[in-house]
Design a protein around this nucleic acid. Structure first.
Length: 744
DNA sequence: CCGAACGTTTAA
DNA sequence: TTAAACGTTCGG
């Protein structure tokens, strides 16, 4: 909701203006602010600056010391010019400053003094996202209208006045406050690419779409199912259904519309918050509605479900499982193809926030919260994929919510659940908005080639070097996209016990459940996430998502990326995906604990993100078959950060801690090996299979006296290298540390 | 357009 | 008063 950072170009002017106004800090009275504050049209004052909640996980964290902003800080030896908070510490639920008071009664929020939820709400300060006024709902006397609570941001709503006046939700584009940064301001603006996709794909439908708040993004479950089946690793060829996809989208559009109209019919006026509140008093109830409400799916796109947890299988194991994974994955991936409305899609990211779109459209009479939304008779497949999407979306929600500060929510209920309900009727829209995320558009499927079956797993034979598979390209540049909200990883501890209907809690503690969950696949976890909110949160525990596998995921969406960030995996497999440089860069900057990164088959354009990002803890880097990765690129990859300004003292190799480097299928020569031996003192395993330019001399370099690799290497894979002689291999065997070889 | 810079705000 | 950092503007 919240910010419907819509990217609707049609209204670009007004939007941008409004947004600007919204973002502008409120000049203090009497203070001549250096910032000129464009008058905010009809809306009242400028938006109040928000501040950290100091309670969410992000706020409680210590600075990572590794991110861009940390490095700028004086305490970390930087110049201190940027004055930005650590990326990992960006508050999830920025609050109104303590000094905020109600414009009507001039008093601060009083919710703490009240018991009843309803009272709490009425006496807490609420900031209107449109007019920016801060009031106690109770101080307003507007009848016939009701506010729409923004569950994205604490103490934020569209006040009854604005809501009643039908003011555009566009204004919602305002920023959410501190902590909510948009990708556009950060290293990787994921969003852009998406939009373009959509635009490209839905150009036709765009015409008929209603300008603005029209409908929630459309959700097309089927899309996923229509995806061409992913190939198993052995038959790597990639699908390239671009054309089909478009047609399908069209189809979906129609269906969506149907859906929408259907929904509209169901939109009765809603009751006021209080009533809603009553409805959600118990978790039980919540859970009842949960599925439906969250129904549209929130996201984990990862192949959830797909990959087994590390301990159950080898990460490199891509066996049979994959196929089944794919089935699941696809739906997730494809999820949201909203079409027309992407604009509202606020957060591509994912999340929890649903955003804007919903907000926007929900003006006017709001649909009632539907407990059981009846889906039209559609194919089962659609239902299924929808369910998956819900799962995904829920997860996101869950994750997001974890960090949220309970406003006036009752103790045991999930933090924002209540809020969400306030704007009941919106749920659907909301969730849909999540789905809006589009798949990467323009992904050049056409560019993808089938890759030879031999190449994937190491050790396979490759017929000829030139047969290397063509990695998917990064999505084309896109047009202005909505901003992407970035949130830090979820905080951990959700409720320790499962609340029951009667107010008691289930006997089994969370940790016990967690042990059970550990035995489940990601796929199964997704199913569990749909059980109830508590399980939903539990199943998001990052311990259950140590390894996330998006291998061959044909469309990496922002939603997926944000889902990854929240789960903070230790191992991430993005091999053979079309991830773009920005996306990768964005990810890396937010995964400080990443140990394993697999990018085989990606384009150098994307992999080059590693040149500008730092992954200090990275231990395993897989860049096999990365097209365009040659000596020059290797140099860029291994050289210290280019930023040599004072304060940017890190002159060490960005990949200095890599122990396992996989370079199979690259056209690299001795030059790269020299660099590697110099820059990766901890390198233990090196895969040089199918590197045609690697020869006897190259091998000598690795074991030459004085090189660190001489002592650190324990395993080298030289299979598929015709230029490496057996005698050479034998000489390697003299090195005691080198215990494993693979040759031809 | 995007990242960097910095004035200003906020809390301590 | 100071440290932190939000949000706008600047500059490439």
């Amino acid at each position: 909701m919240a910010l419907s950072l819509s990217g609707d170009d049609e209204e670009y002017d007004s939007e941008s203006e409004q947004q600007r106004a919204a973002n502008r800090p409120k000049p203090k009275m009497g203070t001549s602010s250096a910032v000129k504050l464009p008058s905010n049209r009809s809306s009242s004052g400028a938006r109040r600056r928000r501040t950290r909640c100091r309670k969410c996980e992000a706020c409680l964290r210590t600075e990572c010391g590794e991110c861009h902003f940390c490095k700028d800080m004086k305490k970390f030896g930087g110049p201190g010019r940027m004055k930005q908070s650590c990326i990992m510490r960006q508050c999830i639920a920025p609050v109104l400053p303590h000094t905020a008071v109600c414009v009507v009664c001039a008093e601060a929020g009083k919710e703490d003094t009240l018991e009843e939820e309803e009272d709490k709400f009425n006496f807490m300060l609420m900031e209107c996202s449109i007019c920016n006024e801060i009031v106690h709902p109770n101080c307003l006397k507007v009848s016939d209208a009701q506010g729409v609570v923004n569950d994205e941001l604490p103490n934020c709503w569209e006040c009854p006045k604005c809501n009643h006046a039908g003011k555009s939700g566009k204004v919602l584009k305002q920023k959410r406050g501190p902590g909510f940064k948009y990708a556009s301001n950060l290293p990787g603006s994921l969003l852009r690419e998406q939009k373009s996709m959509k635009e490209e794909g839905d150009a036709s439908s765009a015409a008929k779409r209603r300008p603005d708040r029209e409908e929630t993004p459309r959700y097309r479950p089927e899309e996923s199912l229509r995806q061409p089946p992913l190939l198993s690793p052995s038959t790597l060829p990639r699908p390239r259904p671009e054309d089909k996809l478009r047609k399908k989208r069209k189809l979906f559009d129609d269906e969506e519309e149907e859906d929408l109209s259907l929904r509209k019919k169901e939109k009765p006026d809603d009751q006021y918050f209080s009533k809603i509140l009553l409805q959600i008093k118990t978790e039980e109830e919540d859970e009842d509605t949960y599925e439906e409400e969250d129904g549209e799916g929130r996201e984990p796109h990862f192949r959830a479900g797909v990959e087994r947890k590390g301990r159950f299988g080898d990460a490199d194991d891509e066996g049979d499982e994959k196929d089944s994974k794919n089935e699941l994955l696809n739906p997730c991936i494809r999820t949201p193809v909203g079409d027309s409305d992407q604009s509202h899609c606020s957060s591509p990211q994912a999340g929890p926030s649903s955003e804007g779109g919903s907000e926007t459209q929900e003006k006017g009479p709001r649909p009632k919260a539907r407990r059981k939304r009846r889906l039209p008779n559609r194919e089962l497949s659609r239902e299924l994929s929808k369910a998956l999407n819900q799962e995904i979306q829920k997860t996101e929600d869950c994750l997001a919510n974890e960090n949220r500060q309970p406003l006036k929510v009752e103790p045991e209920s999930e933090n924002e659940e209540p809020k969400r309900l306030f704007r009941n009727g919106n749920e659907l829209g909301d969730q849909r908005s999540h789905l809006k995320t589009k798949e990467m558009n323009g992904t050049p499927w056409e560019l993808r080639h089938f890759y030879p079956s031999q190449i994937t797993p190491l050790g396979f034979n490759r017929s000829t070097p030139t047969n290397r598979p063509v990695p998917p390209r990064s999505p084309p540049k896109c047009v202005q996209m909505e901003r992407h909200v970035i949130r830090p990883p979820p905080i951990s501890p959700p409720p320790d016990r499962l609340p029951l209907k009667d107010g008691k809690t289930h006997a089994i503690q969370r940790e016990v459940w967690m042990k059970i969950f550990h035995y489940l696949t990601h796929q199964e976890l997704c199913v569990c996430m749909r059980v109830c909110k508590t399980w939903n949160r539990w199943c998001c525990d990052k311990r259950l998502w140590m390894r996330i596998d998006l291998n061959r995921c044909t469309s990496v969406t922002p939603l997926m990326l944000s889902g990854i960030i929240r789960r903070q995996p230790v191992s991430l497999d993005l091999s053979w995906t079309n991830i773009s440089k920005k996306q990768l860069s964005w990810l890396i900057n937010r995964l400080p604990g990443l140990r394993v990164l697999k990018l085989s088959g990606c384009s150098w354009a994307a992999v080059s993100a590693l040149c500008t990002s730092s992954c200090p803890l990275l231990r395993t880097l897989d860049v096999q078959w990365v097209e365009g990765l040659k000596d020059a690129q290797m140099r860029d990859l291994l050289s210290p950060p280019t930023d040599n300004r004072p304060g940017q003292l890190d002159n060490r190799c960005k990949l200095r801690n890599v122990e396992d480097l996989r370079l199979a299928g690259l056209d690299i020569t001795d030059t790269s090996l020299r660099l590697i031996s110099r820059q990766m003192p901890l390198l233990s395993r090196l895969d040089l299979s199918y590197c045609n330019h690697i020869n006897d001399q190259s091998v000598n370099l690795l074991t030459a006296a004085g090189t660190t690799t001489r002592d650190s290497l324990t395993e080298i894979n030289l299979s598929g290298n015709s230029s490496v002689s057996h005698t050479q291999i034998r000489t390697l065997e003299f090195f005691s540390t080198l215990t494993h070889f693979k040759i031809i």
